[in-house]
Design a protein around this nucleic acid. Structure first.
Lengths: 144, 144
DNA sequence: CTTAATGTAACCACAAGAGTTACGCTTAGG
DNA sequence: CCTAAGCGTAACTCTTGTGGTTACATTAAG
């Protein structure tokens, strides 16, 4: 099931780091906000560190912090960092090449799915972590 | 895992029905083109019949055929018929409501993901089964 | 040197999907 | 009327992906 929560948890984590304003936040604290195990948090953050979105400090008083201002981090960057290459549901799809339809449907479908996926990514690119942070504050402070 | 091939196989099946030009095609024949089990085909077609995209004829000499011309069937219609409601990866996502971030991130993320998904669906709506059929023929007949 | 933290590996549990077998029901064609 | 073909669906297994958990080596602050 391409239905994993890796992206959702990742955005939550980075929003929390933005919320803590550059402090070195240990995985246990993030885990408390997400309500899961610290190892799950560290696993995902490991991918985000590799993508240079997050800085990690080892040792006592260590933890994680954003490696760029929230304005410079788009949700697309997060998505690409933690989501494996999209299968587009073509995993178990290897049609009969002897059939004129089966021989070419894969290529045709691939083109359509690539466009659809690109359109979704463009939407994610439009939102930055700063936008999320702003909405978070609007809820906390702004009451009608 | 949201990575299933239901949509890909469904488009393949309907493209095959368009290719067979309204004949009553048995599931075994479609299964041969997709290279899978006839029951898998019938399971998916069952959803497409419920969505009124396909007509099923029982009994001997029975089979499946399109219930509308290919121009009237969009890939979005197929997608909606066979793909369950999108979880957007929020299945295992129930953050700590006592945390100011966890309390509201779910709503914020839901809005962003809804927009991204709508954008993807709009792209699928732009393509009809007739377009797929046309590309299929372009490959079969058109050689440089 | 102690303590707190990251970075992984290893394992279990669970859910979803695909494939398969089986069987009842329906219908065309003789 | 009877038979063969084919749909509709349930039940089962197998595989895979994901999350959760424990464990442990490594690192760094104080």
């Amino acid at each position: 099931m391409s239905g994993n929560s890796r992206f959702a948890v990742s955005v939550h984590m980075l929003a929390y780091l933005a919320y803590r304003q550059g402090a070195a936040v240990p995985s246990a604290e993030i885990a408390s906000s997400v309500d899961t195990n610290p190892v799950v948090i560290r696993r995902l953050l490991s991918a985000l560190v590799k993508a240079r979105l997050v800085a990690a400090r080892k040792g006592a008083a260590g933890g994680f912090s954003l490696s760029a201002p929230p304005e410079g981090i788009s949700l697309l960057g997060i998505y690409r960092a933690v989501e494996p290459k999209p299968d587009h549901g073509l995993r178990h799809f290897s049609p009969n090449q002897k059939c004129p339809v089966g021989a070419k449907i894969e290529t045709i479908l691939g083109g359509v799915l690539a466009k659809a996926h690109a359109s979704m990514e463009a939407e994610l690119a439009r939102v930055s972590l700063a936008d999320v942070h702003r909405q978070l504050h609007a809820v906390c402070t702004g009451r009608r």
